[in-house]
Design a protein around this nucleic acid. Structure first.
Length: 552
RNA sequence: GGUAACGUGCCAGAGUGGUCUAAUGGGGCGGUUUGCAAAACCGUUGUUCGCCGGUUCGAAUCCGGCCGUUACCUCCA
């Protein structure tokens, strides 16, 4: 049974769709005036996993819009001397590129404001008829500009149901100049009359364009009807955006708008300090071991007394190395330095409603986990290419503990059904990956108490491979080809650190020769040289693999 | 100023009344393995859940207060 936390009721509830077997899902999309940032990544990755999970049990209609008519777009376009719709089209393309990299699937329907003006007008008409909205003459001198239309907030009883605020607090906190033509300061614009230098559309109220909130009410109506199952978005949209959406849609249709409201938490960028000598992140070292060093006016923190000594002796040498890596904001900036799946892993490893810390250190950790995932897959593939399988017991039986079958998928499902708890689910997944490594390295005895013959291991690894696909399909990680993924990840790191791959390969070949000649002194000398380049070697049965040393 | 969310061990992060003396991952330490490493795997470390008080037979988990962090309060996912 699936349970979801509903922001509307502030409780976890059993998920029961309006129509059996079907789910209508609407997620607020981007306002396309710039590249997507990590906050967008969080939201769309979260709902991508949610959507993937729902599709296992329901026929899902997933709608995620583009807001391509908006103040910020117009402002940016005017600065660039570009048509607003041309600018938004560019950023829609950029959005798709970014989301492809993050393995975020396209929504079933991705509607745009600019092609839904008729729905927006129908909705506005409906609200005017019910006197939930009112017209006031435009102050604009643009020819054809007629009226502005405002929503009459006082007429909608449950206005604050979602945000748990009260109108009086909002009034007192208002920080924007009040438009004196409004009946009440809280009233918001449904339709804005045309202004100089702005695009406009025709309407019964004269030329103009829609207000900010109406587009989601209109597009969800167009594609999911007046009432649907799940509405999602970032927590920051609770007020005013979602609050106003409810007011508009319920005010017009007189029906419950969305049954469940799901809101993802924020991304908090952290600037994390490193020890200037060892380069280690101070957060990784117990505070008791930190040593403060004062140089003139400036204070520095080292990770240990040893480091502090070295630092005092040669501060200039170390200060050069400690330059800040800076904070990242756009998805593109992050993906220049880290592999695409590392960002997704980071996002999925925290529950979607909780705040998530964002820093180089955490990305680096995520990067290493993704590498572990692919290295495991690679090792399994190698093993299976070398060993034939024979029939035997299943993973559940062989890895049973305390008389209980080992059933990672069931555990995974339990977590996912508990408000899409991907963080817990990832914990199960981690253990599942370990199972493969145990078998590949012939160490299953550590878990099961007895050793298996290779054909039995191969049988279990075949089963494992099938099962793995079920996990990766849900979390959207580990679905690429392992070899090419790892190579890509390595090339990215090599390029960033100026490591010459050809040189590394040459040294590895030299070392291989030395090892074949049993000249281990020479081989180790070469390896030291390689290690000095921040390259780490891994000797396997099928040859030497190499990776770039992690910053951690 | 108003409102809300969050605060878990060295770090990240699950856990919302009793098999929690806290899943999982990272780190540290010890080991298996390896020509030596790396990787992988095993063991171990951490009595502790922001602080104070209360409810309860029993609390990380419920209630109250305090402190801290983050965010929102008309156009940010």
């Amino acid at each position: 049974m699936l349970k979801v936390y509903n922001s509307l009721t502030h409780k976890k509830e059993e998920f029961v769709p309006l129509q059996p077997g079907k789910v209508g899902l609407y997620v607020c999309g981007v306002t396309v005036y710039d590249y997507c940032h990590i906050g967008h990544a969080r939201c769309y990755i979260s709902f991508d996993v949610i959507q993937r999970w729902l599709r296992r049990s329901y026929e899902v209609t997933f709608v995620r819009n583009f807001t391509d008519v908006d103040d910020k777009i117009i402002k940016r376009a005017n600065e660039n001397g570009e048509e607003p719709l041309a600018l938004s089209a560019r950023f829609i393309d950029a959005y798709h590129e970014d989301m492809d990299k993050l393995n975020v699937a396209k929504a079933d329907i991705e509607p745009k404001v600019s092609t839904h003006m008729d729905w927006i007008i129908r909705l506005t008409e409906g609200l005017l008829e019910k006197e939930m909205a009112y017209r006031v003459p435009s102050e604009s001198d643009v020819k054809g500009a007629g009226d502005d239309v405002f929503y009459r907030v006082e007429k909608f009883k449950n206005y604050m149901e979602l945000s748990k605020k009260n109108l009086d607090d909002l009034r007192s906190g208002a920080r924007v100049d009040v438009d004196s033509r409004k009946e009440s300061p809280m009233d918001f614009a449904l339709w804005k009359s045309a202004k100089p230098g702005e695009p406009f559309w025709e309407s019964p109220y004269g030329n103009g364009r829609p207000g900010w909130h109406i587009e989601c009410s209109a597009m969800s109506w167009a594609h999911l009807g007046t009432s649907f199952d799940i509405h999602g978005g970032g927590k920051d949209l609770v007020f005013p955006h979602h609050t106003n959406e409810i007011a508009q849609s319920e005010g017009c249709h007189g029906e419950k708008y969305a049954k469940y409201w799901l809101h993802n938490g924020f991304v908090n960028v952290k600037d994390e300090a490193k020890c200037p000598v060892s380069g280690k992140f101070l957060a990784e070292i117990p505070e008791a071991e930190h040593v403060t060093v004062q140089l003139g006016e400036d204070m520095y923190i080292c990770g240990s007394a040893d480091c502090a000594e070295k630092f005092k002796a040669e501060p200039d040498t170390y200060l050069k190395m400690s330059k800040s890596l800076g904070n990242f904001f756009t998805i593109r900036e992050v993906l220049e330095k880290y592999s695409n799946e590392s960002l997704r892993w980071l996002m999925v490893s925290t529950h979607y409603r909780n705040p998530i810390g964002f820093s180089d250190r955490l990305l680096e950790k995520a990067e290493n986990r993704v590498a572990y995932l692919y290295e495991t897959r690679l090792a399994v593939e190698e093993y299976l290419s070398q060993h034939e399988a024979v029939e035997g017991d299943s993973i559940a039986k062989v890895f049973a503990r305390d008389g209980q079958d080992y059933n990672p998928w069931a555990d995974f499902e339990t977590f996912m059904n508990d408000d899409f708890n991907t963080a817990g689910a990832i914990g199960v997944f981690n253990e599942f990956l370990k199972v493969a490594n145990l078998l590949v390295s012939g160490r299953e005895k550590e878990w099961t108490g007895s050793k298996l013959k290779p054909p039995r291991r191969a049988r279990l690894l075949n089963e494992w491979t099938t099962l793995l696909a079920k996990f990766t399909e849900v979390i959207g990680l580990g679905e690429s080809d392992p070899e090419s993924y790892l190579n890509q990840q390595r090339s990215q790191r090599s390029a960033l650190r100026g490591i010459d791959e050809a040189r590394v390969n040459q040294l590895i070949a030299d070392r291989k020769t030395a090892r074949e000649n049993k000249d281990f002194a020479k081989a180790d000398e070469i390896r030291d040289e390689i290690n000095a380049m921040q390259v780490v070697l891994k000797d396997t049965l099928s040859g030497t693999r190499w990776t770039i040393q992690s910053d951690l």
